[in-house]
């Protein structure tokens, strides 16, 4: 079995309202697959279909080689699930809750539970109603991870967690994958997924906009570029930037001579795609300052959310960030 999850033509209707319009995707075993999309895009509905909590209206769902509808309890023992809206009982402690789920989905090594609780810095003997949102989320993660499942289905796993605990979570995901598990997680923000995921599906209004690797998204994403150069003029710098594929939104101005070295040019632009051609061109200049920012994947994804029908092909060629930019200089079109 090389694919942990296969979803083909998945549709889900609630009454007359269809919320999933035929999803197709597959998750390779031993990888981390992220689904991102705004609230209401269908992430939670998709995950609930994998767990047989709700039933597809049409389409085929295969989880660990089995149909969740027919596989029954043995399949769910191999899955760890964190619901998007985690509700815990009030009159219990974390330990009693975990013991109950261990009794159902066990066997669970109690030392493993204590280890995870220590790492997440979670007190299992506190009443659950007194736990903060973050601590409840930790408990939810613990019940998903504790029986070392082959597949983890985690709906917004980092919501409510502080950055330190998020790092622990990412480590837990890496360890699970190293041990052969597959992780399927969702988020409404890419930054939470990009660190963990090998592949990312972008879901919008019940449809998959694209399935892409984080690397490809990074290529598609837009970086802000800013540099100063001396001994040149605005026209030359503009022409130089125009030769670089993926550069857009170029703004170049010469600083007035007084107080500066003559011929100081300040340029800003955006870059999508490969960095190397830009660096090669910039090497010709006498740079006094250079800033190339971390790509804003959020921006790339937002473009996909709102983008037109051609977004899928655009991702492939890595120019999504500049597509349709009105201020795009000539020459950049060669990308």
């Amino acid at each position: 079995m090389t694919q942990a999850i296969v979803v083909e033509g998945l549709r889900k209707k609630f009454g007359h309202r269809e919320v999933l319009h035929g999803l197709d995707f597959a998750v390779e075993a031993g990888t981390v697959f992220g689904v991102i999309g705004p609230n209401g895009a269908g992430k939670t509905t998709t995950m609930r279909c994998l767990l047989d909590i709700i039933r597809p209206s049409a389409g085929l769902v295969t989880v660990l080689g089995q149909n969740p509808r027919r596989a029954g309890t043995s399949l769910r023992r191999r899955i760890g699930y964190l619901p998007g809206e985690l509700h815990l009982e009030n009159r219990t402690t974390g330990r009693r809750m975990l013991e109950h789920f261990a009794a159902i989905s066990g066997p669970v090594d109690p030392r493993h539970v204590n280890d995870l609780a220590d790492r997440l810095n979670l007190d299992l003997d506190r009443q659950t109603r007194k736990l903060s949102k973050g601590n409840k989320q930790k408990l939810g993660l613990l019940q998903a991870f504790m029986h070392k499942p082959e597949l983890l289905v985690l709906d917004e796993p980092t919501s409510g967690l502080d950055p330190l605990v998020q790092q622990v979570f990412h480590a837990m995901v890496r360890e699970a994958v190293a041990a052969g598990a597959t992780v399927f997680l969702s988020s409404h923000v890419l930054s939470e997924v990009q660190q963990a995921a090998d592949a990312v599906a972008i879901l919008r209004d019940g449809e998959i906009v694209t399935v892409s690797t984080v690397e490809a998204l990074r290529m598609a994403a837009v970086r802000q570029l800013r540099f100063n150069s001396t001994g040149t003029n605005a026209h030359d710098v503009g022409a130089l930037l125009a030769r670089v594929p993926g550069v857009a939104n170029v703004a170049v101005r010469e600083l007035p001579a007084d107080g500066h070295t003559t011929g100081t040019v300040v340029a800003t632009a955006t870059l999508s795609g490969h960095v190397k051609p830009l660096v090669q061109e910039l090497a010709r200049l006498n740079l006094t300052d250079l800033v190339l920012e971390e790509p804003d994947l959020e921006e790339a994804v937002l473009t996909l959310y709102t983008g037109g029908a051609d977004t899928e092909s655009v991702v492939g060629t890595g120019t999504v960030g500049s597509a349709g930019s009105p201020r795009r200089p000539e020459g950049a079109d060669r990308a």
Binding site: I53, G72, T73, R76, P83, H87
Partner: peptide, 14 residues
């Protein structure tokens, strides 16, 4: 209604 059943059913029960 309290949202607890979803998590129970995600475990190994029918």
């Amino acid at each position: 209604e309290s949202g607890l059943l979803e998590l129970t059913l995600a475990h190994s029960v029918t």
